[in-house]
Design a protein around this nucleic acid. Sequence first.
DNA 1: AAGATGCTGTAAGCCAGCTTACAGTAAGGG
DNA 2: CCCTTACTGTAAGCTGGCTTACAGCATCTT
Lengths: 236, 236
Amino acid sequence: MRSKDELRSKAFWCLLGINLFENLRPEDMQELSRYTQNRKYQRGEMIYLPGDPATTVYFLKKGRVKLVYLDEHGRKLTLAICRPGQPFGELMPDEDHKRSRFMAQALEDVELCLIGRDELIRFAQERPHLSLRLAKWVGQQLREMESKLEDLIFRDVPVRLARLLERLAREEGVPATEGIEISLKLTNREIADLIGSTRETTTVLLSQLRRSGVITKRHGRFIITDLEGLKQRCAN
Amino acid sequence: MRSKDELRSKAFWCLLGINLFENLRPEDMQELSRYTQNRKYQRGEMIYLPGDPATTVYFLKKGRVKLVYLDEHGRKLTLAICRPGQPFGELMPDEDHKRSRFMAQALEDVELCLIGRDELIRFAQERPHLSLRLAKWVGQQLREMESKLEDLIFRDVPVRLARLLERLAREEGVPATEGIEISLKLTNREIADLIGSTRETTTVLLSQLRRSGVITKRHGRFIITDLEGLKQRCAN
DNA sequence: AAGATGCTGTAAGCCAGCTTACAGTAAGGG
DNA sequence: CCCTTACTGTAAGCTGGCTTACAGCATCTT
């Protein structure tokens, strides 16, 4: 059986690589790690569902996770794709501890560590620097939401699709022989959910882009073969 | 000429009634007030414009202010209506101090006090409780944005209009003989901007609601005469 | 009083993109 | 290997709500 110390140092290690906790003093890390847990999920598994009490904050260690809004009629909108190092979950829920309206789903095999919202806040209460970082994190989420809103109101579906692909190429792209490969397995349905459109419309638009030589597909992953052409389609 | 103390206590008074600074120690209030300024604006005046550097945080003392997103083609979306006691402005802008994409306009004669973002953050740095409140504030903005997004994607225009009127009746309503009066002068154009629709469509829908006996208008202000009927129209 | 400016009301026409429907293809699993 | 399930591709039709266009009012200005 492993010693407590070993377990603790393992948890400690878990906190490394998380942007939010960079530059934290080692003894603080040590303390914080006592409140954390490690979890693993397989591709496709749900990490939390709409309606689950929003009392936990998650930090991605490995794999990617998508955050999806689900409405009462089953329509979906994917709000974000989180990458290793990033936190997700609701840090600042309603006064009345209302349940989250989002779900988090593993896009790949995922490793994460989690911490109770109240513990994290109590811990931050005595560490102003961390508190401000939390505020900054929430501020980032806010800005992402704003840009999502901007897209959905002011841009039409073809432009939203082009902008999504351009962003994915920038954020998740790896160089390939034909161009930039988006290192994410995404179905047309998932892309549709990301741009707030339907599967059918998205399929048609993707076919057009393929025929125009802007993109191609290999092993279920998209490759941007003409980044310039794509960028032209990002404007209204 | 007035003494420094008098000026200071006046500024101090300015901080009272602002939710964010409730329960702050008097000496902290005293110090914070040294960084603040008071300003007045008339109905219709701009407080800041898109493109202005986002370095200031505002606290409303009197009157209401609307925050509007303006796109490059002149289309508008009103994101929020702020009321006395509420803060607005961008507390947590991009790393690169990107300029705000919003404008703030006085809906009525307005009194506010303002403080530099950096000063406020430096001040909060040593007061963890305040830092967490800032995070909570940003969290609230985030939730409002989420609900705006939800409306815009999943609900059609008539429902969005009904929900807006219901919300305004709840938040800005005062009892009147015929029903609940919304204590805000709003043109059809402004209502259209609030629900992400056009002036014409909004006019038609408002006329329908009037003909159905759900609302009426007096002195440029709407009165909800049939709250139940309105609530029925809030569902999809 | 006349003119300018901005708000309200109404209506015809149009179109992006959602719906519905179906066929073909890939892939996972027993 | 077959069978089931899920994904992709295509197309006809419909419709919510945006566009465009005007006319009548209400303020405000000088």
